[in-house]
């Protein structure tokens, strides 16, 4: 066997090289996570200072919190819709980009751009386009006879935040799908063509199954994204409204903690969210591990 590991002659060099990353992880991820878990077991005074240990009270209180349970339902709808939209549109775009002969590189580069846009900015962009009074798309909808006002219509608000959230993730998914498509051997598709399969059947019986490892990976990434990183979109576009119609968990956490000033309750919600997404990720990776790799 050839030694594939990098070998350092000094002990401190590798430590120095990974130290910055470890420090960032510790300060910005581990420490806050630890603080969150601890505060989930306390009730804090609204203006700080006092703190009482209350055990699991913050968690049990969530069960009786109608707004929290509503938020849970909203989150499931929002995440499922965002993930599904992001995956299906990016797959469609990737399949077409893979077929394109001319201008393929330009097309691919342009489609990758949205990923460079922060979720909050993406939210603002969509907000402009669909603003009921000045938005171009809103006017177009109005012209088609669709009364558009996401500020009062909860369903429309949900559609808007789903589109804005999925839009950015489409770019990311697209790059992965395109790479996966390009690694499907052309002889397989030719063999299927000779076996009598038309283009649509070839896609669903040969290409799509071969993409499944990529699809599962993106499913995990997109779900985690829609649970956590979409805070910026919600905050800039709807602030959880109207009437909590887009109040997803990560926004509910923020509302409880920083608007409602119930830090313990907010921390408990964060912990539940964390456990939920950890569970989901473990489940998905176990599922992927169990699958045959090609």
């Amino acid at each position: 066997m050839i030694e594939r590991r990098a070998v350092f002659s000094h002990r401190w060099l590798p430590i120095a090289l990974v130290a910055p990353q470890l420090a960032v992880t510790a300060v910005f991820f581990l420490w806050p996570a630890y603080e969150t878990v601890v505060s989930a077991f306390y009730v804090q005074g609204a203006f700080g200072g006092s703190e009482h240990f209350v055990g699991l009270h913050n968690f049990t209180a969530l069960w009786d919190n109608a707004s929290y349970l509503h938020s849970f339902g909203i989150t499931l709808i929002f995440s499922a819709a965002t993930t599904l939209l992001a995956l299906s549109v990016s797959l469609l775009l990737a399949v077409n980009a893979n077929r394109a002969l001319r201008g393929a590189k330009v097309y691919q580069a342009l489609l990758a751009w949205p990923y460079a846009v922060a979720p909050a900015i993406a939210g603002v962009l969509w907000l402009f386009m669909l603003n009921p009074s000045v938005g171009l798309l809103a006017r177009a909808l109005d012209g088609l006879g669709v009364p558009w006002d996401f500020r009062v219509n909860g369903t429309q608000a949900m559609v808007l935040v789903v589109m804005a959230s999925a839009w950015r993730q489409i770019a990311y998914n697209f790059l992965f799908f395109l790479a996966a498509l390009q690694s499907v051997p052309s002889s397989l598709i030719e063999a299927a063509a000779i076996d009598g399969a038309g283009p649509i059947r070839r896609f669903w019986t040969i290409v799509f199954p071969l993409l499944s490892p990529t699809t599962f990976f993106l499913l995990v990434i997109d779900l985690v994204y829609s649970f956590f990183e979409t805070f910026g979109v919600i905050d800039t576009v709807t602030q959880g409204g109207p009437a909590n119609a887009t109040n997803i968990l990560v926004y509910q956490v923020f509302e409880t903690g920083f608007v409602g000033l119930d830090l313990g309750g907010s921390a408990a919600q964060s912990v539940v969210l964390m456990l939920f997404i950890i569970g989901l990720t473990v489940l998905q990776f176990r599922f992927i591990e169990g699958r045959v790799r090609y």
């Binding site: 051997p185 002889s187 397989l188 030719e190 063999a191 299927a192 063509a193 000779i194 076996d195 009598g196 399969a197 038309g198 019986t205 040969i206 199954p209 071969l210 499944s212 045959v292 090609y294």
Partner: peptide, 28 residues
């Protein structure tokens, strides 16, 4: 290709990796 009544054996075999041997043969 499907209307030409031909069958082809490829250099790299081009077997469908996600199907059993039986399903590879049954596909067409």
């Amino acid at each position: 290709p499907r209307e030409r009544d031909i069958a082809m054996v490829f250099q790299n075999y081009a077997l469908y990796p996600h199907m059993s041997v039986y399903n590879n043969m049954a596909y067409g």
